[in-house]
Structures are given as structure tokens and as C-alpha cells.
Design a protein around this nucleic acid. Structure first.
Lengths: 239, 239
DNA sequence: GTCTATAGTGCGATAGAC
DNA sequence: GTCTATCGCACTATAGAC
């Protein structure tokens, strides 16, 4: 799988995302006309991610957001009741989409090695397609309330468990060696996060998303496969 | 090298750190009596890291800081002229200490494999000893001014180049395989960062700092050493 | 459904007493 | 060298016009 193939399949346009958000907040959003609401939500989320990812959510004022989105302050408050609720909307939407696409991403792949590689690629590609969301979720998680912060942690652990389970299954089948699956998953996640957190670094090096994904796959396989088996995994098996 | 050995050698008490800060800001700090100034700087930095790492530097008010440090707002402003200057003081101090200790950490080790392993261990141990500083530097870097932000990026790239150079030297000697040294260094750094950024995760798993360091070393060696050579690096060579 | 204008709050920073 | 009291400002959120 390449990033181009992933993009075609996932089809996560901002438009669709905003329609989903609208459905989830029908009762709290005051604007009832769907096309208007979806269009404005798109403006709001684009502006929020743009401004907040540059200077931080706390530092972003409602005036900033008003200017960046083109909506007046009054209009903004038709879509959320407080700045904190806006924060939670962005976070929960990101979490929901991520969880769904990640699970869909590799469920049909059965071979443990390909399954692990596909999980890694899917995560990198997903974080590439939704980079502003991932960056925002990571950096602003600690500004959430207690309840929402707990949800964010659970979501992170769930993603990690997904990787750990793939590794455990491979160990049971005798394909992977005996390194601690949970800790291995944690290290994998750390490498995956760097791609969307330190974008400036990889942009400066002109490193493509596909190359990054393959590098992580190689590193993980070198670690998880028994000595001697590594050479056989440089490419994909199928096709 | 273990964390206990590292701690004994590095001796980076907060007291020494604050004395160093005082020396660097003698002219801008209004309190001239050294013992008082050092004691208060210690209170200020402890409080800043504690509050800011919990809720973010922007969200921390001067009143929060006053309460947490036990100093009045007026007294605080004897040590810095604005909240922004406080931010820069914390950042630049962290950068300076990190750079120095990291370079000292492995300069005497010559064997490429041990050199890379020592560099990794030193970074993990250093980030453990100064966890609040590392966390703060990472999370608050984007709230810096343009000039300071550039310095922070340079510092990150310098650390990465250090790892890349160790790998390059090992490749020249024929000890490491041919994987891109710069990208490998970036992945190493990503794994090292997780230790001080996601402390709650590793604390919950009761994972010790030594175990984490060894796991990263193993992963990196599995990747960098030619197939077949991996089994020989499970422990340290000397002693 | 969206705008402008503003009320009310809480911030960073300082002046002057001790 | 430090404290208390307060200034001026910029913020979030809302009320009422259109």
C-alpha cells in the first residue's frame, strides 16, 4: 500500500468530516440549515487548526478565530457554547475518525508480518492525511478537562494495544521473536508520532511520507523478526 | 552504564542549575545577594515547571506562579521583566545543560557500537534526571519568539546530528549497515522523546528507566547491525 | 442566521510602602 | 528585597439590531 492508494480509499474530505460533526451536535448547534452549517463548520475547524497549531489553542483568541474564519464572534458562538467546547469538538472528532479508519485499515490482512506492516503504514498515512488534527490532539490534550483527558489517554492506549495485539498474534504463530509486545508497541507509536509532530524536520529533508513509513516498517521488522529472517521483508509479499 | 551511575557522575542538582542561571542573568536580575537570589530562582523554576507542565505555560497566570512559588508578584518581577522572558530563561537553561552533558556523556567511548549505545543511554538518563525541563522545552517551544524558536530547532537538529555522526563513523568502519544515518537518528530521537513526554504511560507500567534505555538500544542495534551480528550486543562489552 | 457593540472578568505589569 | 494595592488592557461571552 502506498499513500496515494490510501488516500483514494479513505476519502476523508473535510466536508464529510464536518457533516459528521454536525450530526453529532445537532441539538447544540443553533444554525439549522445544513448546507450553511456544514460550510461554516468547515471554516471554523480550518481556522482553529491553522491558528491553534501555530500559536497554541490557549493563545488563540476568539478575535483571532473570527478573523481567520471570516465569521463574526457572534456567529462563532452559534456553533459552540464556549471555547472549551470547541476544543472538545476538535478532539473528539479526531479521535473518532482515527479509531474507525485505523481499525478498518488492516482488518482483512491475515499474515502477521504484512498485518504489522499495514498497521504501521495505515497510521502514518492517516496522520499525514489528517496532520493538523493529529498535531492538535497531541499538543492540546493537557488543556482538556479531566473527563476528556481520560478519554484521550484511553484512545492512545487503545491504538497501542492494537499494535501490541498484532505482535502477540505473530508471536503465537512463531513468526515474531519474544520482545515485550507492549513496550515494542510503545516504541512504534513514538516513531509514528514524530511524523506529524516534527513536520518541519521532514519537510526540510524533502522526505516523502511513503519513505518514512517504509523506514519505520524496516526498523520494526529488524527488531521483531528472528535473526536471519529480516532480509525477506524488504518489500510487500502480495502483488 | 546504569541510571544510578549516571546520576552520581552528572550531579545536576537544581541548586547548581540555578546558580548557573543567576550567572547568566546577573545584570537583569535585581536581587544582588547571591544566596537569596539562588534560593528564589529555585522556587521560581520549580513552580514554573510544576504548574506549566500541568496546564501549559500560557494557561499559567502570574498569580498561579506567585502562589506556587510562595513569592509575591512583585518579587517575581525582580527576576525577570516579563512572562516571556521567564519562558526564554527556562528554555535556554535546559538547552545549555542538555548540550553540555550530552557531549560529555560519550566522548571517551571509541567502539562504534558502544558509542551509539552510550549516546542513547545518556540521552534517556539525562531526560530522566531533568524530565520537567525536557517536557517543558518540547511542549512550549512553539510559544517562543521567532529568534528563540530558531535556536530550539537548531538544538534539536544538533542532537540528531550527534547520533547521525556516530552512525556514520560506524558505517565507515564497516560495523553498521547502510541505512540512512540521518533518518535513523530521527527515529532514535523520536523513541527517546517518548520517555519524557509520555511519562504517565511508563509509570503505569512500572517500567524503569534502565529497562527503557536497553529496549531502545536493542531496537536500534537490530536495525543498524548487519544481519547475524545482532546477538552479540545484548550486554555491554567492557567490564 | 449573522452582525456590531459592549458588559463583565481576569490578566500582566508596576508604583510606592515597608 | 519584598509586599500589597491597583492600573490599564484584552479577553470571553452575550444582547439586541438587522
Amino acid at each position: 500500500m502506498t499513500y496515494a492508494q490510501f488516500s483514494r480509499r479513505a476519502r476523508l474530505s473535510r466536508r464529510d468530516l464536518c457533516r459528521r460533526i454536525l450530526e453529532g451536535h445537532r441539538d447544540s448547534i443553533k444554525t439549522k440549515k445544513e448546507p450553511t452549517a456544514v460550510k461554516n463548520l468547515e471554516l471554523i475547524f480550518d481556522a482553529t487548526l491553522k491558528v491553534a497549531n501555530a500559536k497554541g489553542f490557549q493563545a488563540m483568541t476568539m478575535r483571532d478565530l473570527s478573523q481567520a474564519s471570516g465569521l463574526s464572534m457572534g456567529a462563532l458562538y452559534a456553533y459552540f457554547s464556549s471555547k472549551e467546547e470547541l476544543l472538545e469538538m476538535v478532539q473528539s472528532t479526531g479521535r473518532e475518525v482515527t479509531g474507525r479508519l485505523l481499525r478498518e485499515g488492516f482488518e482483512e490482512v491475515r499474515d502477521p508480518v504484512e498485518r504489522l506492516a499495514t498497521a504501521i503504514r495505515t497510521h502514518v498515512f492517516l496522520s499525514e492525511a489528517m496532520q493538523p488534527w493529529f498535531f492538535f490532539s497531541y499538543m492540546e490534550a493537557r488543556h482538556l478537562g479531566k473527563r476528556q483527558k481520560e478519554l484521550a489517554k484511553q484512545s492512545e492506549l487503545a491504538t497501542e494495544k492494537m499494535f501490541a495485539d498484532v505482535i502477540r498474534a505473530g508471536q503465537t504463530q512463531g513468526v515474531f521473536n519474544g520482545h515485550d509486545p507492549d513496550l515494542t508497541a510503545a516504541l512504534i507509536k513514538a516513531m509514528l508520532q514524530d511524523w506529524y509532530l516534527k513536520r518541519w524536520k521532514y519537510a526540510a529533508r524533502r522526505l516523502a511520507v511513503d519513505a518514512y513509513a517504509e523506514m519505520v516498517v524496516k526498523m520494526v521488522m529488524a527488531f521483531c523478526l528472528p535473526v536471519g529472517a529480516v532480509a525477506t521483508v524488504s518489500g510487500e509479499k502480495k502483488r
